[in-house]
Amino acid sequence: MALVSAENRGLRLAARYATLTLVALVFMFPLVFMVVSSFKPDQQLLSDTSSLRAFLPVGDISLDNYYAAFRRAPIGLFMLNSVFVTVTTVLLSILLCSLAAFSFVFLEWTGRNVLLTIILATLIIPFETIAVPLLLFVSKLPWLGMEGIAWGWLNTYRVQIIPWIVDALTVFLFVQFFKDLPRELIEAARVEGASWFMIYRKIVMPLSGPVLATAAILKSLKMYNEQYLWPLIVVQDEAHRPVMVGLGYFFQLQIAWGEVMAYLTLISVPVIGFYLLMQRAFISSIASTGVKG
């Protein structure tokens, strides 16, 4: 009897892994293609795309594309720029969006519903459609710096950071998750005289690991991978360019595909690293987040 059930369990486990692996193949192949291709010369890379050789490190394998890519563009600079802009934006975003969401979910105040509705409505506005008005706007904005007031935000980090800090998606994410937190805890703390900020800091935030990680992951993807049009129009000097604008360096008349793949592989490393970090810190700790007591 026990033997049969053990056998069953083994089979079921095998089936589970088989499913997981099959699904993994579906999601893995472009990344494998990208990494493998980055080691191949262009001619071979392109002719390999018609067969499964596209996923195998076979043929003429070398680091040449990487050397060439580094000669073509200041990759380190672009990555530093992107990482700096992304990290700053994500940190500020999490702080301001969660504060706002906290007030929408746990506090009652005049204007709350109106404000929340307005914020959610902005989810619909595609950035491409407000880029020009926003450009005209930031080019006239003042900034208080070391040398007094400077006008215009072009060619800076702040122009790549500040307009992106708050977005409706992140606020919405926090709102939806805060709704699932136990209200009793907050009311109890309130009865004991805790200030709202203390409740936010000591009760709500510690319970919000998964949503913090999620918000950070999603926001960082947006900042690192999708910042193209905006930096293109507000940053004219190479010194402040992010990675996606840098991609343009590789699209000459004859596209150097091998170098493109090498560049993409390089710039993907920080994002994957960040995801692993977040996953380790929050997502895998399922057992420890017994939220609903």
Binding site: S103, T122, V166, A168
Partner: peptide, 23 residues
């Protein structure tokens, strides 16, 4: 327990202002 105009606006305002200005 949860009614607080002052705290509500204070928490929501920084985020909302940025959204208002830039979107």
């Amino acid at each position: 327990l949860t009614r607080s105009n002052r705290a509500g606006w204070l928490f929501a305002l920084p985020g909302f202002s940025l959204l208002f200005l830039f979107i």
